[in-house]
Design a protein around this nucleic acid. Structure first.
Lengths: 366, 366
DNA sequence: GTGATCTCGTGGAACGTTTCAAATATGTGA
DNA sequence: TCACATATTTGAAACGTTCCACGAGATCAC
C-alpha cells in the first residue's frame, strides 16, 4: 500500500541531473539555471518527494527544532506561553517539541536527555526545583538554555520572567486608591517564589501609603486552588464586620473565585462590602458571578521573547550577551474592586472596561 | 566554551573496541561480554557521550516520534487529550511533537509537511474541515493517521471519538428522572457535529419518555462561550414562569455558566426554579457558584487510546485492522440539577458527590 | 585570439549511526 | 589434539543530505 520513500537521488535521475543540483534547487534556487530548476521541480512534484529531515540534520550537525519544558501543560498560563513560543519559532522556521515535566525531576531529566539526543537548537525551560546542575551541564555541552518564568541566579543564561512584586504593588495600590484601609492578602505556600513576591509587593504598596492604612492581614493557604480560597473566605467571613478587611488581594484567580463564592454564601456583597482582586486574569475571571479584577501577565509575550532570546543566542554565537528580561504585569479593573459605596464615583458604564496601568519590559544584561 | 560533540567513534577509541561494539552495548547489551560492556560504559560516561538521534533515524528510516495536531492547545479538552497521548507514547519510548492548527487549513498543512519531513511514525489529528484529501495522500505515502474526536468517514483509518448522542441522552434522561417535563436545549451553531449530536441525544431521551414530557425547547446560540450563554439565559428569563422550561441542558459548560449567571441576575434560583446541566465537566464546573452537573468525556483516555491505536498500527504492519473506537461519556451530578422542590429527596450530603452513570468504550472494526 | 571572469553543473566526501557477514576467540566432546 | 559449535568482536557498507573543490562552456576586455 505504501509507496517506497523517494530520495533526492531518484529525483536527480528523473530530471537527468546530479544530486548536487537537486540539493541546490532545494536550498539555493537562484544558483541554478531556470530551465534545470523547473525540470527538477517537476520531478519533485511527480515523484512526491519529501525532504528527509534526519539526513539533513545529520549533515548540518544540529536540528531545526527547539525544546520547551513546562511544569504543566494543562495550566492555562503555560499553554499561553507555549503559543507564544510556537509563534516565534515558526516565524524562524523552527519546530517546537513540547515536554511536560509535571514538576517531577525524573520526568524532567528524561526529557532533557531526549532533547539533547535530538540535538535541539536550544531549550526553554521552567525548571523543577534543583535542576541547576543538570542545566549547567547541558549548557557546557553546547545546548543553549533559556529560563522561563524564573530568573537566572547565575547570569550564565538568558531568562524571562514577570515582576511579581510589581504585580502585588499594583493590586494593592489600586485598592488603596479606591479608599480601602483594611486589606488582606490570601495566598500560599510562601515557599513559592511568585507568591512571596506578590505579598512583598502588597506590603511595599502599603508602606508607601504612609500609615493611613493598617498592616497587611495575611492568610496563608496550603495551595492555590478554589477550595483553598473557600477556606480562606470562610475565615474572613467569621471576622466581625467592624474589623474585617474591606478588600482582599489573592495570589491567584482560583483563590479569588473561592473567596468570592464564600462571600456570596455568607451574604457579604462584592464589591460593596468586600472588594476583591485576583492574579493571572484567567479567562474565567471576566465571566465570574462578579467579574473579577485581576493582575494580568503577558503570558504569550513571555513565551515569544523567550524563544526570541534563544534564537538570538544561536545566531549570535560569540557576540551573544545573556539577558534577563523582566516583564511588567498590568492590572485589569473589573467590577469586583469598584465603587466601595453605593454611589459610584464614575457612573459611566465605560469605566467598567479593562484598563491597563502598566506595560512593557525591562532588561538586565549579564 | 562548548565542548566538541563526541561521537560513538571516540568512545570506541577510548574503550579500545570497534564502533560496532559500542553500538551493540547501546542496543543489545547482552550480546557483548561483561568486561567489554563495562569498559565501554565507562568510556561513554567519561566522555559524556550522547547518542545522535538524527543519525539513528536516518539509518532506521523512521523516527521515534509521533505528531499530534490539535485545533487549539489552549482548550482544556485538547490539553487533556495531549497528556493522554504523551503518557502512552512515552511508555513506548516515543516523543510527541505537538502542533496547533488553530483551525486554519494553512497552518495544518504546514505542520503536516513538517511532520512528514521528520518521518514521524504516525500522526494523530483532529482535522480542520476538509482535510480528508491531504490526509489520504499522507497515508498513501506510508504515514499512519489516526483521527481524534472525529470519526473516519471512509474506514480507511483508525479513529477515536466520544458518543455525543449518548451524552445528550444521559443529560436529559437524568432531568426527566428528577421530574422535569419542560426541558430546553441551549447550544450552537448546529453545524458543529458535536453540538447537533448532543441535541439529537436530548431528543432521543424525550421520545423514549412516551409523551409525558413536552418537546425539546431549542435555543440555538452563535457560539459556545459564556456570553452566548448569558444571552440565551436572558431569553429564558423573559418567558413567563408558568411556561418557562424547568430544566436547561447546555451544549457545553461555558454556556451553562452564562445561563447560570443570568438566572442569578434575574433572581431565578438554580436548581430550585431551573435545573441546569452542562457538558465537558471543565474544572470550573465543580467550583461554580452553584456546582454544575455536567457530562464528562474521557479526555485523557481518548488521547491515550489514539496513541495506542497508532502504535499498534506501526507494529502490526500487515495484520493491522483499522478500528473506530467510540467512548461513552458519563454524567456527573452536582447541585445544579438536584432536588427540584425545597424538600430534598436525599438529604444526605454524600448525594451531592459525583456519580458515574456510564463508562467504557465500544468498538467497530473496519 | 587569448587569458580572465563568469555561470552552471558535477561528483564524491562527509555527517554518526546501525546492521550484518565475516573473522576471531573460547569451549566442548571424543 | 582436532573438529566443531558457540560466544564475541570486527570492519565496512549503507541511510539521504549538504558542501565544496573543480571543470566545462560562455562571455568579456583587450
Amino acid at each position: 500500500m505504501a509507496d517506497a520513500p523517494v530520495s533526492i537521488r531518484e529525483v536527480a535521475a528523473l530530471a537527468g541531473v546530479s544530486v548536487g543540483t537537486v540539493s541546490n534547487v532545494l536550498n539555493r534556487p537562484d544558483a541554478v539555471a531556470e530551465s534545470t530548476r523547473s525540470r527538477v521541480q517537476a520531478a519533485i512534484k511527480s515523484l512526491g518527494f519529501i525532504r528527509n529531515e534526519s539526513a539533513r540534520q545529520l549533515r548540518a550537525g544540529r536540528s531545526r527544532t527547539i525544546g520547551l519544558v513546562v511544569l504543566d501543560v494543562a495550566n492555562p498560563f503555560f499553554t499561553d506561553v507555549a503559543r507564544g513560543v510556537e509563534d516565534a519559532a515558526s516565524e524562524s522556521g523552527l519546530a517546537v517539541i513540547l515536554c511536560n515535566s509535571d514538576d517531577q525531576q525524573a520526568k524532567e531529566s528524561r526529557y532533557l536527555e531526549l532533547l539533547e539526543e535530538h540535538r535541539v537548537q536550544g531549550i526553554l525551560i521552567t525548571p523543577v526545583y534543583g535542576a541547576d546542575e543538570r542545566l549547567a551541564r547541558l549548557q557546557r555541552r553546547g545546548t543553549p538554555v533559556v529560563l522561563v518564568d524564573s530568573r537566572s541566579p547565575s547570569r550564565g543564561q538568558c531568562s524571562v520572567s514577570v515582576d511579581d512584586v510589581l504585580g502585588g504593588d499594583l493590586a494593592v495600590s489600586h485598592l488603596l486608591a479606591v479608599g480601602h484601609e483594611r486589606i488582606a492578602f490570601v495566598g500560599g505556600p510562601m515557599s513559592i517564589r511568585q507568591v512571596a513576591d506578590r505579598r512583598d509587593g502588597a506590603v511595599r504598596a502599603l508602606e508607601r501609603a504612609d500609615g493611613t492604612a493598617s498592616d497587611l492581614y495575611v492568610i496563608e493557604t496550603p495551595a492555590l486552588n478554589v477550595s483553598a480560597g473557600q477556606q480562606a473566605g470562610a475565615a474572613l467571613a467569621e471576622l466581625p464586620a467592624e474589623t474585617r478587611p474591606t478588600a482582599v488581594f489573592c495570589a491567584n484567580d482560583l483563590l479569588a473565585l473561592g473567596v468570592l463564592q464564600e462571600m456570596t454564601a455568607h451574604r457579604i456583597r462584592v464589591p460593596e462590602n468586600v472588594a476583591l482582586v485576583g492574579y493571572d486574569d484567567i479567562d474565567f475571571a471576566a465571566a465570574a458571578a462578579v467579574p473579577l479584577s485581576s493582575v494580568r501577565q503577558p503570558r504569550h509575550q513571555l513565551g515569544r521573547s523567550a524563544a526570541q532570546l534563544l534564537i538570538d543566542e544561536t545566531l549570535g554565537e560569540q557576540a551573544h550577551q545573556h539577558r534577563q528580561v523582566v516583564f511588567e504585569p498590568e492590572l485589569v479593573i473589573r467590577r469586583s474592586s469598584q465603587a466601595q459605596r453605593r454611589r459610584p464615583r464614575r457612573p459611566k458604564r465605560s469605566a467598567l472596561a479593562a484598563g491597563a496601568l502598566a506595560a512593557g519590559a525591562s532588561e538586565a544584561v549579564g
